[in-house]
Design a protein around this nucleic acid. Structure first.
Lengths: 208, 208
DNA sequence: GAACAATTGAGAGAAATTTCGCAATTCATC
DNA sequence: GATGAATTGCGAAATTTCTCTCAATTGTTC
């Protein structure tokens, strides 16, 4: 497929654009210019057009883009046409917050199961959100059985690689990693690393 | 000051290096090569050396870097020599998780107060972590009075810009933004945007 | 103290990403 | 149906970021 040659940055921004389009859709806007959409997403319009250029041609010169068409096109490329099941590993503070956080569903993802080393310590999410919390020992089988392609890792650093190995062996294709650990994965597996401490830490440089 | 011309990416990685150095320090390692440190941080050694080159010269050819010296040097540049007070706005799922999350303190940051539109709905964090939760109406005064330089925004999108304006007017210098909103700030204020939904959303592209 | 192995530091080169510039196209108006 | 304003799409230029290469330096061994 031609997917491979879209820059990672562009892919990330496509998902921003998608969210903005959704918002326009809710407001019954049916046409946007690259300027409108770009400023909603916080980027320059030239960048937006370049990004969309990787995907195809959807605009009408002089007019702009049809919100609906563009949104559908991006959905297609991003593989968001149907709900993508996701597992989450590590139901600590952050993991539990992510389960309760509704924002993922709108992006086309649904956390269908959570795993923890001590599921009995976990109470909230199961009842609140209907997400069952299993023992981490069943992770591999679950992922393989349900053909889950995306995993969210929210375990402590020490367990990060171990959990990742299980996921990889069971056929995971993409990981969103919230642990501070640097995860070692085969090339075919994509990891997005969200390092909260580093994000905050790097702000230190800019103050004073 | 000479700070301005270090690339943002490099600044981010410096904070990774710092954390790795801390770990080496705990293990009583006192010298590391660029290869050792780079692989701990998940980057190439040439990149590490280039990054450190922005800060100064700390290594000894043939030997490597003194963990202690390098760590101190990075701390100096990153302004982490003393604990940096931080306010957090929006004590929902994510905000509460961030308060409970201990990892920030190690990076030299301490959440000294939290703010919410409905502080009475918030229970956990105040008692657990000793972080008081105030009404958002007192945010501006608090920030100004305590000369807080860094803020964490974890409010819903609709409130993002409003809260940001208050922070900016009160003299904030850096913001870690977890809301989906694109925050408009003057040039002097730095924003790090952590967009959870977009991070997960962009993974959709890479699966299947 | 000479030869060797290890490792940094920095300039040059390569690659990736962003921005610019402008022709091409479309719609609305006269 | 010609003129003008708006706006895309894309190649080219500029910028930023990363990687390579290699001389310079240090400690170690014989």
């Amino acid at each position: 497929m031609e997917k491979i040659d879209i820059p990672k940055r562009t892919v990330y921004r496509l998902s921003l654009y998608q969210r903005c389009l959704q918002k326009f859709l809710e407001q019954s806007v049916d046409t946007v210019s690259s300027d409108d959409l770009a400023s909603a997403a916080g980027v320059k319009s030239t960048q937006l057009r370049k990004d969309l250029g990787y995907v195809g041609q959807f605009g009408t010169r002089g007019l702009g883009y049809s919100v609906e068409t563009l949104s559908a096109a991006i959905s297609g490329v991003m593989g968001l046409s149907m709900l993508q099941p996701v597992v989450l590993i590590g139901v600590g503070n952050l993991g539990a917050a992510l389960i309760r956080y509704g924002g993922f569903r709108k992006e086309g993802f649904e956390i269908i199961a959570a795993f923890d080393a001590e599921p009995s310590n976990v109470k909230g999410p199961t009842e609140e959100m209907g997400v069952p919390v299993h023992h981490v020992s069943s992770l591999g089988d679950y992922v393989a059985e349900h053909a889950v392609r995306v995993g969210i890792v929210a375990v402590p650093e020490s367990a990060g690689q171990e959990v990742t190995n299980i996921l990889v062996e069971s056929g995971i294709q993409a990981i969103l990693n919230f642990s501070p650990a640097v995860l070692n994965v085969p090339e075919a597996v994509v990891v997005n690393h969200v390092d909260l401490a580093a994000e905050l830490g790097s702000l230190g440089f800019f103050v004073n």
